[in-house]
Amino acid sequence: MTFDQLHDITAWMADAGIDELELSGPSFWLRLGRGQTQARDGQASAQPPGASKPPCQVVTAPTVGVFLHRHPLHAAMLAPEGARVKAGQALGLLRIGSLLVPVTAPSDGIAGAMLIAHETVVGYGTALVALHPLER
């Protein structure tokens, strides 16, 4: 993960109206907050009471490859935004030659927006797709 990518992700968070985001990859874990100039120790003041939603996660590329939103045989996306997905389910695919490596949901959740366009070459750790927690 590079600072450029962080910049892209915060821009996307602004577009999507997401305030807080959790990112994890094979070798890192990161939590991003937006619109709050104060340090997080003043958290109670920044959010209305009772609205502490669990953070949205970003699923990153487990390898380099061409990011696919849909299986090459299918017209429909593997995980359209808003779809409920199971832990281990493929949200997208990375194509390396004829190999298709899944970008899997780390937990049950609701598929969020794609952060990278269909058929884009991506590197290891690139943020690919958001995963929202299930409503409690």
């Binding site: 045989l73 493929a90 695919l93 004829s98 490596v101 899997t104």
Partner: peptide, 9 residues
């Protein structure tokens, strides 16, 4: 888990 792109494609 992983897959292959079908040879038909």
């Amino acid at each position: 888990s992983f897959g292959l792109s079908p040879p038909a494609l």
